[in-house]
Design a protein around this nucleic acid. Structure first.
Lengths: 138, 138
DNA sequence: TCCTACAATGGACATTGTCTAAGTCAAGCC
DNA sequence: GGCTTGACTTAGACAATGTCCATTGTAGGA
């Protein structure tokens, strides 16, 4: 039983086969699946699960703060279960591979008040783009 | 005549009424229109322009490096004509307003070699999220 | 002016995501 | 263990955004 499932149960989340499967699919490091990929993997374990349920469940997990939405490309949103440790992303421009990274600085501190236009800033998202070793050698 | 049009002509871009209108719509600071918004404004000047042409032209401008694609939300891509001065974006989480900003630090320098996983990094995109003054006072 | 390659058109199609009405079921209660 | 009930799931229609293609039009050079 994963920590995620334990936490969800502890928060009064009604447990169903569908939700369990979605939560199980989203487990591990450097996991960044699209909703469709989550659905595809969920179907392997629970063939009758519907797309709508996967979307609903992912949305709930995001609301609960257990999963992060990531948009590294302009296609589908991706879901990152590593929500409890702040991090940014490194994306291969060719194959789309994604790694979690932890830069040393604080980008928030780098934005002077004169460049904030009166906004109250709550969050910063940094995406590094480049070419991964696999694609570079190909 | 805008600088953009001059530059494009100088690069041998075949000039048509449609392309001129699209380039004219994309002009100014803090401009971040979606493809559909570009189309809507282009139609005001050239009623018969088609969506496909707008998409094609935007794609060409991006390829030429004259316009940047920005994805501050997960809906439509936005097009930013301010491609010749590197900058990042500040987005209002409520109304979607976007401002160009220029942070002081260099996020690239903040990513140690051990966090690069062998990638050759070429680009960094930083998005600040928060609430704009208008939305905060509402 | 005429040609020709390149551009524009419009409509079909693809992808991603949302919504709804109806059926199903987990969990509490007896 | 068997009800009850409200939350959950489902299938499919719909919406938003973007792409593709065959046909038609035209900018710019000869």
């Amino acid at each position: 039983m994963s920590d995620l499932l334990e936490r969800l149960r502890g928060r009064g989340w009604r447990m169903t086969a569908q939700r369990r499967v979605v939560a199980e699919v989203l487990d591990g490091d450097h996991v960044h699946l699209t909703a469709d990929e989550v659905h595809a993997r969920a179907v392997e374990r629970l063939p009758e699960i519907s797309r709508a349920t996967v979307y609903n469940t992912l949305g709930e997990l995001v609301t609960l703060g257990e999963v992060l939405e990531v948009s590294t490309d302009r296609r589908a949103k991706r879901y990152d279960p590593n929500a409890h440790r702040p991090h940014h992303h490194l994306v291969c421009a060719q194959c789309g591979a994604i790694r979690d990274v932890h830069p040393s600085g604080d980008p928030l501190a780098d934005l002077p008040a004169t460049e904030r236009f009166g906004f109250t800033i709550s969050d910063v998202e940094v995406t590094y783009r480049g070419v991964c070793p696999n694609c570079a050698s190909a």
